[in-house]
């Protein structure tokens, strides 16, 4: 097993995760806006359109849920890699390694969630084109 003893190693996760957070933050606000617009439009539309909008809204809420978990996992991963640096700074190599592995694991989970979210990202558009 490779043992991390340099304090600079956990820092490699930092820039990636923060960029990912920024990208997903933008995605989150955009989807929120679209969902809000749809929910105000839904009141004054006719019935078939309303059904369609409702389907879209459900997909949007699903995606928002995924993005929320994704961001949570990313932040937790960032937290653990900072904690790992903290331990390595004080020479606690074992704790540093454990927290670093945890950080990498959380990052992996976050990326898998991101894959699921990307898979759903086309669906609302498809439903919109059905009208």
């Amino acid at each position: 097993m490779h043992i991390v003893s340099k304090i600079t190693t956990p820092a490699f996760l930092f820039s990636t995760i923060s960029l990912l957070m920024s990208a997903y933050g933008a995605r989150f606000t955009k989807i929120c806006q679209v969902a809000r617009n749809l929910s105000s439009e839904i009141r004054d539309t006719d019935l078939p359109k309303k059904k369609n909008f409702k389907k879209q809204l459900l997909i949007f809420t699903k995606r928002l849920g995924y993005i929320r978990y994704l961001q949570l996992f990313a932040v937790v991963s960032l937290f653990f890699s900072t904690l790992s640096m903290f331990f390595l700074l004080f020479g606690k190599i074992d704790f540093g390694n454990i927290t670093f592995i945890l950080a990498v694991l959380f990052f992996l989970v976050s990326l898998v969630t991101s894959l699921i979210e990307i898979y759903y990202s086309m669906k609302a558009l498809d439903i919109n084109l059905e009208i």
Binding site: F28, S39, R68, V75, F79, T82
Partner: peptide, 26 residues
Amino acid sequence: MLSLILSAIEINISVHALNIQLSESV
């Protein structure tokens, strides 16, 4: 680390407002 913990809390309540909005229309 403190800032990241606060960020996690903020993300956790981030869908709350939208849920209120959508509970009306959905």
